[in-house]
Computed example of a mutant assay.
Amino acid sequence: MTTPPEFATKRRLELFDALVGLFLAEGFSHLTLDEIAARLHCSKSTLYTLAGSKEQLVRSATVHFFRGATDEVETRIADIPGARERIIGYLEAVGAALAPASDRFMADLDAFPPAREVYAQNTRLAAERVHQLIDEGVAAGEFRAVHAALAADIAATMMERIQQRGVREATGLDDAHAYRELAVILTAGISK
């Protein structure tokens, strides 16, 4: 009997969600494929249907996490009126999406180049989104005529420092709080 495609897709999503939850809570560098399979209540061969190696599994899980986080962030800001509120909502939502990530996960992510690059790419995309939101605010007359690319670059620089744990080391703020503070500082700086 063949597994229906909709079940396979649903099962894959459930496994990726469980995998992301495990990695966010505990990190991934110390886990073997056998341990991951046991924790997810599946076989190693099932894990191999998701990715060909542990390294690919980690990268795929990281991509899955950031896709879900991006969807969650955009959903949270979809109905927010006003550019200032949208930027604050956006950066707060980014912080909230990262809040479940344990220190162990973030350290593992930083130490594993393929996963670190996924995070860096998502940080660049988030900075581009902030740029768009600033442009919208300037066009609507909510923000003074700022150089939106510079303001977005400042945001991107801080987002990279947050990603690389520099903000935590310098200030003691976790990622979620750092994003909230960035939102307040950024929007105050460009407001009329």
Rank of each mutant, 00 (worst) to 15 (best):
I185Y: 12
K192D: 14
L186R: 06
F65W: 09
A93N: 03
A107G: 04
A183G: 09
L50E: 01
E92D: 13
Y179G: 05
D34V: 14
E35Y: 05
N122C: 04
A127G: 05
F28K: 00
E160L: 13
H30G: 11
A176C: 14
A78P: 01
Y179W: 15
T187V: 10
G141A: 07
R129M: 00
A155R: 02
D71Q: 10
A176R: 15
L109W: 04
M159Y: 02
L173C: 08
V130H: 02
A111G: 11
A126H: 00
L91C: 01
L125V: 08
T187P: 00
E169A: 15
A156W: 08
R12Y: 11
A51S: 02
V146A: 05
I77W: 04
R180K: 10
P81R: 05
E117C: 13
A61Q: 03
G141C: 10
A69G: 05
F16V: 05
R168D: 03
K54F: 06
K44R: 13
V118T: 09
R180Y: 09
D71P: 01
T46V: 08
E72M: 08
E6F: 12
Y119L: 12
E72D: 12
L40M: 09
T46G: 05
D103P: 02
V167S: 07
D34P: 03
A78K: 01
G141R: 11
M1T: 11
Q56N: 14
L173A: 13
V146W: 02
C42A: 12
I77N: 02
A93F: 00
T46Y: 02
R144H: 13
V130F: 02
R67A: 04
S60C: 13
H177K: 15
G137Y: 09
E14G: 10
D79S: 12
D110M: 14
I77T: 06
G21I: 06
F28E: 03
Y48M: 11
E169P: 07
V20R: 06
D110I: 09
L98C: 06
D79G: 14
R124Q: 10
P81G: 08
I77A: 01
E160V: 11
V167C: 09
R180W: 06
A148Y: 02
S102E: 11
V184I: 15
T49N: 06
L50T: 03
P81M: 05
E55V: 11
R67N: 08
E128M: 12
G89E: 05
A127I: 02
S60F: 06
R104N: 06
R124K: 13
A38R: 10
T32R: 07
L40T: 01
A107Y: 08
V73S: 00
L109I: 02
R11Q: 10
E160Y: 14
D108V: 03
A8W: 04
D17P: 05
H131N: 12
P4L: 15
L13D: 14
